Measured scan of single mutants.
Amino acid sequence: MQGVVKVNSALNMRSGPGSNYGVIGTLRNNDKVEIIKEVDGWYEIRFNGKVGYASKSYITIVN
């Protein structure tokens, strides 16, 4: 499943599904990501070869 990031500035990509996990990357508005699965309001995603987590509130699913 594919998604597009929708933010005003930047979205942190984290090592786990929560804001208490470390930041491993930064996503920008309109970045395209691969959604692997949903975990407690977060998406596990793949972006630029990295796998991490981002809040699903800021990612819109596209077909």
Rank of each mutant, 00 (worst) to 15 (best):
F47E: 03
G22D: 15
D40N: 13
V7G: 13
W42E: 01
N30E: 12
I36W: 05
E38L: 07
G41K: 08
T60Y: 12
T26P: 06
G22Y: 10
I24P: 01
S15R: 07
I36C: 04
N12M: 09
V62F: 11
E44Y: 07
I36V: 09
I45A: 02
A54P: 00
V5W: 00
N48G: 09
A10V: 13
E34Q: 05
D40S: 10
S15G: 10
R46S: 14
Y53Q: 00
N63L: 10
N48R: 09
V33N: 00
Y58C: 04
S15P: 01
D31E: 11
G16L: 02
G16Y: 02
Y21V: 02
E44T: 04
S15T: 10
M13A: 06
K32A: 11
I35G: 01
K6Q: 15
R28M: 15
N29K: 07
V33A: 03
G49F: 07
G3D: 02
V62R: 06
I35C: 03
V39E: 08
G41R: 06
G41T: 09
T26K: 13
Y21T: 04
K6G: 08
S15V: 09
I61D: 05
V51E: 10
G49A: 08
M13V: 08
I35T: 02
S55E: 15
I35N: 00
E34N: 04
G3V: 04
T60V: 12
V5F: 00
E34V: 05
I61G: 05
N48A: 10
K56C: 05
K56A: 10
W42T: 02
N29F: 10
N8M: 11
S57W: 10
S57L: 13
S19Q: 10
G18Y: 02
E38D: 11
F47H: 14
D40W: 06
G49E: 13
Y53D: 00
N12I: 11
N8P: 11
G18M: 02
S15K: 09
S9R: 09
I59S: 01
V33P: 03
K32I: 14
G16S: 03
M13N: 01
V33Q: 00
M1W: 11
N20C: 06
I45D: 00
G49S: 10
Y43M: 06
K32S: 12
V7H: 13
V4L: 10
R14L: 15
V62I: 10
R14C: 04
G18N: 06
T60A: 13
L27P: 01
M1R: 06
Y43Q: 01
S19L: 14
K6W: 04
E38I: 08
D31R: 03
L27C: 04
I45S: 01
G3P: 02
P17C: 02
M1C: 05
V5C: 04
N30P: 03
V5P: 02
S15W: 06
M1N: 12
I24W: 02
M13W: 09
L27T: 02
S55V: 13
